[in-house]
Each structure stands twice: as structure tokens, then as C-alpha cells.
Amino acid sequence: MRRSMLFLPGNTPNMILSGDCLGADAIILDLEDAVAPDQKDAARVLVRNAIKYLQFPGVEKIIRINSLDTPYWKKDLDEMIPLKPELIMTPKTSCAADVLEFDAYMSELEDKLGYERNTVKLMPLIETALGVENAYAIASASKRVAAIFLGAEDLSADLRCKRTKEGKEILYARGRMVLAARAANVDVYDTPFTDVNDDEGIRVDAEFAKGLGFTGKASISPRHVAVINEVFSPTQKDIDYAYEVMEAIRIGKEQGKGAVSLHGKMIDAPIVARAQQTIDMAVALGLGKEA
């Protein structure tokens, strides 16, 4: 279960060390934008040691490596793949070929290390106009892709529009990302809300993203994590309804009924699937009982 993903700057020990107690389901240890070019070596070693010694139990580790147009990305992968982080986030992914290039090198490393292929998954960061246009191709380029992630800051620069709090300028991109991800059967994550002092704004933004179909949302501030988790968790009402659905289905089966209805509404396969998702998540959160 991954609702929130928190960015932590890769060369700042003070931030990294408390990564597992800030409430985020996943941490993104950043070797890219948060690290100056002359400190890439230091960040790589620091992140590697932090994962090796601290392990961050109970939290998914995602590494944002540097992009293909830099001299750093292979070295980043050389250091990170042996640690088996759950995911590698690749910035500025613009087409399927980008994914395949990362994929091929990761496979090479996994083979060398004797790891099973696709041990470490990919989360392409889509933050260019071309990337958004190619979102489905990116999401379905490789079995290694587990999720795609929208980066609105770089994207709005590429679109030559102003990034606003309301985010009308990225509405199309958000919708396009969700469609592509769902069509490719992978998860999809929303861009961070960047005003760290706007506690109401983050809630509105997260609720909007959830409404569009995003799996979860990234954050650059620990202060936003709790709200993101809350918004992307099922409500008690959702959970109660999900159990009702499953119970109705069970009774229907017992009675040998073909069609089952609940509160006067037909329960079809998508409703059951959704109810099961809700229950799975509730159980993972300790809110539900095993169905």
C-alpha cells in the first residue's frame, strides 16, 4: 500500500535519518534535483549507507536517480541496485525507449548480482510534454514499470505556462496520466503540492487527485504526509459498504442467485472488485477485519 511518497534530499543526513518515522508509506531518496552536481558522489554513498545500515523498516524505499542525459545515472544504478530498493524513479522519462534503456542496464546489474530480473521496479517520472503524450507507451514499455508519476513543476515549464495552486494548467496531463496508467494496469502518483504552509490547500489538491483516480500523491514536506494518507485511505463508510457488498454476494451465492442487489442497486463485478480493494486496504491499515 502506497498512498504517500515523501521526497528526502539525498545529501542531507538530518533529513534522511528520520525517514522511517515521518508517516509516509514510501520515501523518495533524491539523487537528482536536491543534490548539487559536485555532490552527486557524496549523496550516492550517503544514501547507500543509510539504506544499508538503517533499513527504514516498514517504509518503501524509492530512489530518484539522475536522468539519461547526465553522466550520473549508471553510477547511481551501480550503487543502488545491490540494495534492492523497491523502486527506481527515473526523471524526465519521455518515451518507451527511455524506459527500455534504464530497464536494460538494470537487468544487466541484476544478472551480475544474481538477482532475479525485475527485482527492482521502475516508476518513470513523467514531466515533459512529450512524456505526457507517450504516457501509455511508457507505462506499458516493460514489466518492470510498476507505476508512473506526474511531475508538474518541470512540465509546466515545458508547457510554457504558469504553475498555479489551482492547477488548471495540469488538469489535462493529470487525466491523461490516470488513463495511461489504468490502461497499462500500473499505479499512478500525483505531483507534490508545493506550498508547505497551506494546510487546507494540500487537502483540496489531494482530494481532487484522488477524485481523478490517482493511487496516491508525492510530497516535498513531511507536514503534508498525514493529510495525503488520510485522503487516500478508505473512509469508515467506504469500508462498511465494502463489507456489506461482500456479505450480499456471499448470501446471493448461498441462495444460488445470479444477480444480487444491495439497497436496491445491482451489484456487478466492478463493484465487487472495488469493494475487495477497499477491504484489502482497510486490512493493511488495521481498520478492517479479514473478509
Binding site: 543526513p13 535519518l17 552536481p37 559536485d38 555532490q39 552527486k40 558522489d41 557524496a42 554513498v45 550517503l46 547507500r48 549507507n49 543509510a50 544499508k52 545500515y53 538503517l54 553522466p71 550520473y72 553510477k75
Partner: peptide, 26 residues
């Protein structure tokens, strides 16, 4: 007040840089 894993990381980076001619290196 660096933890041991941080001290190890900084020492490793330092030695790497010293070998590669001194300045910070990517």
C-alpha cells in the same frame, strides 16, 4: 553528531575524492 553510517559515507567519499585529484567529483 553524525551517525556511524554517515561518518563512513563521508570518509568513503573523501577518500574517493582525494584519489581522483581532490575536488568534488560526480
Amino acid at each position: 553528531g553524525a551517525l556511524e553510517c554517515t561518518l563512513r559515507a563521508r570518509l568513503e567519499t573523501l577518500i574517493g575524492r582525494a584519489r581522483e585529484g581532490g575536488s568534488a567529483h560526480a
